[in-house]
Design a protein around this nucleic acid. Structure first.
Lengths: 208, 208
DNA sequence: GTCTATAGGAGGATAGAC
DNA sequence: GTCTATCCTCCTATAGAC
């Protein structure tokens, strides 16, 4: 055994990541000091840098899900593209993408990531991998739904996919900036807006 | 004359603010150093701190319009509330709030301000003054438009005003994060979404 | 009013003992 | 693997000459 128990090593990393995530969400990347992360994780600076080469590496790790997550995610997107009812699949995908907004730290972390991505090409690449996957899935579903006569055929699939993602992002940014905004309570309204945007002829709220 | 030519003093401040705004937009508040601001403004550190007490004060000044701006703004909101046609006034207000998104630096600055407002009560107060004014104007217009039978009466005015602001904010965040997103080109789509959201029975795009 | 020079302090990262 | 102690860089803000 080279480095005694890689599972323990992983658990230790995860412990640090969880401690750091709360701080990054509350204070942002630059205003969070490594000393604070150490304190929150209950360890010394020397030890922290044994697990991560830099503060930025800790930040990146917050946004790199496990491989398990990544696989499950890819599978769900593939299933959505292959679904019989594209409109239903599209609504499910919107729900899937919007759901994490209800978790306490996620909206603030997402905003911080959007800001940092500008100035950090490595993070940019990390995030845009997921982003491109989401966008292309939505575009495919919009095309299928249009072909099936389920949505307004006048909408451009690429622009519309970008807007659907922007509407979902609005849930995150509102949650992060407005304390009175409850993502869980507002999710039905997001669905309503998407529904009316894409299917202006069906006035009633979504049937689900 | 106490301090020789207050107009010159104002102009000098404005020069610094303009130089700093570009840096804050590109790099964010914490990663912009005062040395960089000095270089961009073509002056020494000692001189910079003659005009502003701290880096943070420069940042705040970026978001404090002139009194002239503030007055013109308040006037436009008052006019909107008093308008004969609330629906038309509402669309005009959306345009008014969305228009700055097309200016080059504004979306990035707005995002940076949203992030900083969390941790800076003074900035928070500064921004929420404007924010509350916008939201209450929209709420009033939504009530009037509902009373006039111009929009879906089932929509709660407070929640809906928050969502209209979130949709406008989405224009800013998309512009700041997605290089392919042109706010000027996408403004009609924003109007379309607002239109369909609020008036699901009138399918056609806004008549203006 | 504007400059040069520097004080003063914080924070990221490392060295080396245990 | 984990700690303590510390280095070194960089940044805000000020002092004081001109």
């Amino acid at each position: 055994m080279r480095t005694v128990d890689p599972a323990r090593h992983q658990a230790r990393r995860r412990h640090i990541i969880d401690a750091a995530a709360g701080l990054f969400a509350a204070k942002g990347f630059e205003r969070t000091t490594t000393a604070e992360i150490c304190k929150a994780a209950g360890m010394s600076a020397g030890n922290l840098f044994h697990y991560f080469p830099s503060k930025r590496a800790v930040f990146h790790a917050v946004f790199e899900g496990d491989e398990h997550d990544g696989a499950a995610r890819a599978e769900r997107f593939a299933a959505a593209r292959a679904a019989d009812d594209p409109w239903r699949a599209l609504l499910d995908t919107v729900d899937l993408l919007a759901a994490p907004a209800a978790e306490p730290l996620v909206p603030a972390l997402v905003m911080e990531a959007m800001i940092q991505a500008h100035r950090d090409p490595e993070l940019e690449a990390l995030l845009s991998r997921d982003n491109d996957e989401e966008r292309s899935t939505l575009t495919a579903l919009l095309r299928s739904a249009a072909a099936a006569g389920q949505i307004d055929p006048a909408l451009d699939p690429d622009d519309t996919a970008a807007w659907v993602m922007a509407l979902i992002a609005a849930l995150y940014t509102s949650a992060a900036t407005d304390p009175a905004f409850s993502p869980a309570d507002q999710l039905p309204t997001l669905r309503l807006i998407v529904h009316r945007f894409l299917r202006p002829d069906a006035h009633r709220p979504p049937e689900r």
